[in-house]
Design a binder for these strands. Structure first.
Lengths: 229, 229, 229, 229
DNA sequence: TATGAATGAGCATTCATTCAT
DNA sequence: TATGAATGAATGCTCATTCAT
């Protein structure tokens, strides 16, 4: 009963089948509501998607800003950005996946607004890489490509992380901080203690309790691979 | 005139709007064919998608096998795998994107067949990482996570690479070989010469000539970022 | 607050968009009421329409009867009928329009009841024409057609008359009395004085204060035409 | 089989129930077509209506122009305009009714285009009345009101005329020419011979063969009235 | 009186697909 | 090969109405 529940159902379905392939009727069925009743909680299917994406990107941007406000070492900023990004993606994998993949479903006006949020977030990372490179503490042969690679790597977490899997969110964050540092040639990784207070890892209201099985990119492949975890 | 042209149109549209949001009328319009006529070239919309994805994954798997058949140094195998993967993705970004994102659109039977191809490919990488770690030439704190991160990073190329951009496919390959090595703690990168013959970089028949503008993940953000390239 | 206000809103909207195209939500919005609350004042949308039409036809019939109860000259009866009809239509143009045009929206039972009212009114005019012709004081080559033409002409007033326009209701009545007499070949028009007491021109409770702009039949056409008024 | 048949069904239903109350499904059922198939013949419901109205108004305007192109006596022009108008309305009563009543169903852009046609037609009559009054051959106390009354009277034909009734189209035309002349104080009516060639009375392609029973304004009232016809 | 929540039925329209030509 | 016509099912969404509060 309530708009949040509708959003959660929507996110679960959008993440599983995609926005275009998900019917309003399905969302209604998921929350036990007549399709018409949904429209008490939601203006339209589009609006539902926009709200979800904005919720996610607002939080990502907020976390990103907090990440670069601690100290002034670009290496620390980098690590904090990765930690925040991965934290959000792993805590809200379904929402993150939808936010990442359904931009194309928005029509022009709303797409631009959402894109602006995303671009503002990405600019934070670009800034850190640029400054770190100039300061000689980050080493990237090609800063742009490296930044994009890092970004995709972090976004990718939402494609395979499962809250009920072997790794806690905190563990994934640690591993990715290390990977990020490697990518950017940070020799002596900052110790966890020096990264400042860990980000509040926010669980979004629209993130469903049991994210749908992932078919898209998965840990699921060969049993062997699974064992190693 | 021919099934290839239909596939190219389909890939372009699937990449831009997604499979579910693309109508066969649109595909028909793109190639100047009546929707009914399409069915002379294509069994069904699903079949069209399956063909595209298989074309792509077959090639990826083939290239992956060739990559690990040269020499027996896991570091070389790693580098060759990355080089091949990135080469294919950058040469066929639209096809790669579709292949990566539309698994969910397949119904169970076909999904499994396609997943098997993908998993066989990923197993190649898992193998290399495992052996390299055991041999002490690759250093990953968490091999599984690292492998997934690397995979997403490589897949990500299809999200932002533009054939008409600043970088050639070969350049992206080089950068990614380096990034991959960093990720896996390969201290002294193998020199290009030692990687053996470069993979034939195959341009798939279904890859459209002018891949659609990318709205999904983009280099497009801040002008500053663009310049650096 | 009150059923009248609801009726006025309904008439305004029905006149502007038609009954079928008007939602009860719209009516509610117009009076600042929740759609559910409307049902405290009104049994149903149909009932609302029926009430409006009956209000209008009751009044028309009443006025018609009064018109033919003064004296016994068919010419006077004719003039008085026209005067009354036009008076009601011009004073309540929105209500008259709805009453005239939305018969088709009623379902059978109610339609018959309403039709009976209208037919009883029209019978008054038919009677006058018949008697006048027999008495040789009205001259119509074809009494039936003439009667229908006169009726449409009078009904038409509701299509173009605007209370805030150049003509008062009284002026329109005078002009139409003359036109009606011409139509029926009344050579020497009865002087106003002889027509007896003018009808109380009733403003119906359901007539909205500011009838909606008329798009249907209008004085609006060419500027030139307007000037002449 | 064909767009005309669809239009005829649409006109029949629109005339009977109104545009807003008529579903696409009903139109389909009327012509024995699946609702989806209708869209092979028709772009949309709106477009269907617009086409119908334009067909009607184009013809009316054309006939109107021909009417005033014969000779230069305003009395003749008046008579010819009435004859043409009534001819079209009586020959195509359903189409005429729809055209007259469903303006409000059009959205702004199309409404304006259609209104322009109607206004151009009405301007023809306004012109004739103005010139006739100036020349002293037409006598109207109030030319504007008289013109509107005449217009409504003529439009009204579509509300009650039935092709299978007692009167032929030609007869109605004759009666209305006389009524029009009376309305405008034309003492000695021009003889039929002097009115020039009668207008081709066009049966529109969209006019249904058996116009729906009229509930709106009818000859149907009292049996007595009927007899007189 | 007033309303938020709810619903079954219906809306116009588009879908992928088939088939006779 | 190519297409116009056809369709059942589904699309997102709105409808008038009810009812517990």
């Amino acid at each position: 009963m309530g708009a949040d529940e509708v959003q959660r159902a929507a996110v679960r379905l959008f993440a599983r089948r995609g926005y275009a392939a998900t019917g309003i009727r399905e969302i209604g069925r998921e929350v036990g509501l007549n399709p018409a009743t949904l429209y008490h909680y939601v203006g339209s299917k589009q609006e539902l998607l926009v709200t979800i994406m904005r919720t996610c990107l607002d939080q990502l941007l907020l976390a990103g800003i907090e990440a670069v406000e601690f100290g002034d070492d670009p290496r620390v900023h980098l690590a904090r950005l990765v930690r925040a990004h991965v934290g959000l993606s792993a805590t809200n994998p379904a929402t993150a996946r939808v936010t990442d993949q359904e931009l194309r479903a928005l029509d022009t006006g709303e797409q631009e607004q959402v894109l602006e949020l995303r671009d503002r977030y990405e600019a934070l990372l670009a800034d850190v890489v640029r400054k770190g490179a100039r300061a000689g503490v980050l080493h990237a042969r090609d800063p742009v490509v490296t930044r994009l690679a890092l970004l995709e790597m972090c976004n990718g977490v939402a494609h395979w992380y499962r809250p009920d899997g072997r790794l806690t969110v905190r563990q994934v964050q640690q591993r990715f901080v290390e990977l990020g540092c490697r990518l950017l040639g940070v020799g002596d990784l900052p110790r966890a203690a020096d990264l400042g207070p860990p980000p509040r890892v926010v669980r979004l209201a629209c993130e469903p309790d049991h994210p749908p099985a992932v078919t898209t990119r998965a840990v699921r492949p060969t049993p062997k691979a699974q064992e190693v975890t």
